[in-house]
Amino acid sequence: MIEIGLIQDIISTFLLLVGAFFVFLGMVGLIRLPDVYNRLHATTKIGTLGAFGVMLSIVAKLGLEPIGVKAITVGLFILLTAPVAAHMIGRAAHRHGVGLCKESVIDEYGKEHNK
């Protein structure tokens, strides 16, 4: 007979490790990718899942305690706001004339706005 607390601990630790690993990957991507737009890919997508994983680990550990419910709410708000932040940063960068990196193959937004 395995205790329920042990299973909770294992799930919680696993989710925490997955979340922390993805946050780490996001930071590596921030350093390695060439320009601001590609870096936004790394920080928004991977940062979202990383933070969400950490929040889920809190929920798995504590169940539906007040802190657990708050963690779910925080996760959902991150899911809602991270794309908006990325969109605003990307647009501001493009309007200030930050160019795409030299590997880029196409820029239809620039064509439209630099006539």
Partner: peptide, 21 residues
């Protein structure tokens, strides 16, 4: 996430980014 993680962990960056309408 898996896709971006793969791109980040590649030893050599091989990407063709761009903005499309």
């Amino acid at each position: 996430n898996v896709m971006v993680a793969k791109i980040i962990l590649q030893p050599k960056m091989n990407i063709k980014p761009g903005i499309i309408a």
